[in-house]
């Protein structure tokens, strides 16, 4: 009996060690996924899309106006018309947005979302085959919502801005009245529902309400994508920086149509960096 117990404890300890190893190996940015994992993810994206899309459309309908027609056929056609109108409006808005920026946009639909809110991830139905690459920014007509974390051939995982774990920072810029202030957006305060922008120069005079956009200096983000507005400013702990709390302009509650930003310039930069890395043997990170 006692020997059996010892064996159980040994198995338990081995399994928890295995957990640490597998988490260490599979966490973070993983780029292009291949093999059985990508097959599982592709199938999940297709099947969950069948559930997600109609429910989203039905909710969008019921929240705009409630159709109350006695004839079921008429009601059905009305519903269809409203859905098409809504879709048309959404696409028009995004087209207008796209016309202002001469960068390529890949339209995609959200097919499902992860269950908890401790980390924040949505999955879109466009992948490597459609030109989506890891690290590409994702926007809606309201502004930046996240970036591609990993891709398979037909779907992509998107890490949202509201992810509390926080990925690598975003080089951002506050557009003041007569100056532009650089900073880095690192993490999200779930209690205040604000993005945290660090490393803002102490000399900069920032007012609440000023717009925050991505900086052109970033390696992955094209410049000028709207992130949000400054809500609050406070001095940093060390006294050499200020911290700005940014209210994101996009909504993250019920996402449907999104766009993947494909900036040829940044892609070339990435490729160049990868080549350099493979020549020098890679960096330490």
């Amino acid at each position: 009996m006692r020997r059996n117990d010892a064996r159980h404890i040994l198995i338990f300890v081995c399994l928890s060690l295995l957990l640490f190893i597998s988490v260490g190996m599979t966490r973070g940015e993983r780029g292009l996924l291949i093999g059985p994992e990508s097959w599982v993810k592709n199938v999940a994206a297709v099947v969950e899309g069948i559930f997600y899309t109609p429910v989203h459309s039905a909710l969008a309908l019921s929240s705009s106006t409630e159709a109350a027609s006695p004839k079921t056929e008429l009601a059905r056609m009305e519903a269809e018309l409203k859905e098409l109108k809504r879709e048309n409006e959404e696409l028009k808005k995004q087209w207008g947005y796209a016309k202002e920026n001469p960068i390529e946009y890949i339209a995609a639909r959200v097919v499902f979302r992860n269950t908890d809110r401790w980390h924040n991830k949505v999955v879109i139905n466009r992948g490597k085959a459609d030109g989506v690459e890891p690290k590409m920014p994702i926007v809606t007509s309201q502004g930046l919502i996240g970036r591609v974390q990993s891709v398979t051939s037909h779907m992509a995982d998107v890490q949202l801005l509201t992810d509390t774990g926080g990925g690598p920072g975003i080089a951002a810029m506050i557009q003041g009245e007569n100056e532009e202030v650089l900073g880095i957006i690192e993490g999200y305060d779930a209690v205040k529902k604000r993005l945290i922008m660090k490393k803002v120069a102490v000399t900069a005079k920032i007012k609440p309400g000023e717009t925050v956009v991505t900086s052109r200096l970033s390696d992955i983000y094209p410049g000028g994508i709207l992130i949000g507005t400054v809500a609050e400013i406070k001095p940093g702990e060390s006294g050499v920086e200020q911290i700005a709390y940014v209210k994101p302009s996009a909504t993250f509650e019920r996402l449907d149509y999104v766009m993947v930003v494909r900036d040829p310039e940044k892609l070339q930069l990435q490729q160049h960096k990868n080549e350099l890395q493979s020549k020098t043997g890679g960096d330490k990170r």
Partner: peptide, 10 residues
């Protein structure tokens, strides 16, 4: 499948 799709909207 319902966990990730329908319940995330409701």
């Amino acid at each position: 499948l319902l966990e990730g799709s329908v319940f995330q909207l409701l």
